[in-house]
């Protein structure tokens, strides 16, 4: 616990500038992607093993809060991959280390160029999904929700009955 508190406070307090913040961002992005990936892998396996359960979960994941989380994971993947390539390149070319500060700036700029427009596009998709109440269809039956925030009824998918 002591280590955890020291880690969190020092990560914020220590003023290592862009290199240190980028290291922290790389680590947090990696952990965030992993958390998503574990859920995503076990959930997607259900598409094959239990299609009705999978069908219900993907409708839940289409609601706005999960949509925002998806945009965050998308940004994390982009940043972590660009920065991972930078780390790999500099590990391979130690003679370039004096350019590390510039390389960090390049990674953040490239990341923003790709992420901002695509992130906005995904955000518009969420807004768009809220223009009409959702209609869910499963095994020849349909149900409607009150708003884009509504979860589909589990009974439609024959879950827990």
């Amino acid at each position: 616990m002591g280590t955890l508190i020291t880690t969190v406070t020092e990560s914020i307090r220590y003023r290592g500038r862009s290199g240190q913040y980028t290291w922290l961002a790389h680590r947090l992005a990696g952990l965030g992607i992993l958390a998503f990936l574990v859920i995503h892998v076990w959930d997607t396996a259900n598409a094959s093993f239990a299609p009705n359960v999978y069908a219900w979960t993907i409708e839940v994941f289409k609601t706005p809060f999960f949509g925002l989380g998806e945009i965050a994971v998308f940004g994390a993947v982009l940043f972590h991959s660009f920065n991972g390539l930078r780390i790999t390149l500099l590990d391979y070319k130690p003679t370039w280390w004096h350019q590390q500060k510039r390389s960090v700036t390049i990674v953040w700029v490239l990341f923003l160029i790709v992420f901002v427009p695509l992130g906005l596009y995904l955000l518009l998709g969420i807004v768009d999904s809220c223009q009409h109440p959702p209609v869910w269809e499963w095994a020849g039956q349909t149900a409607t929700g009150a708003s884009c925030f509504s979860f589909p009824p589990t009974s439609l998918y024959g879950i827990g009955s």
Binding site: V41, W42, T44, A45, N46, A47, S48, F49, P51, N52, A55, W138, A139, G140, Q141
Partner: peptide, 21 residues
């Protein structure tokens, strides 16, 4: 192993049939 088996053994016809009831 779990997810790999899910992909390898996936039966698209059965998945479609479940979706369409």
């Amino acid at each position: 192993v779990w997810a790999g088996y899910a992909i390898a053994s996936a039966d698209p016809a059965a998945m479609d049939a479940a979706a369409l009831g």
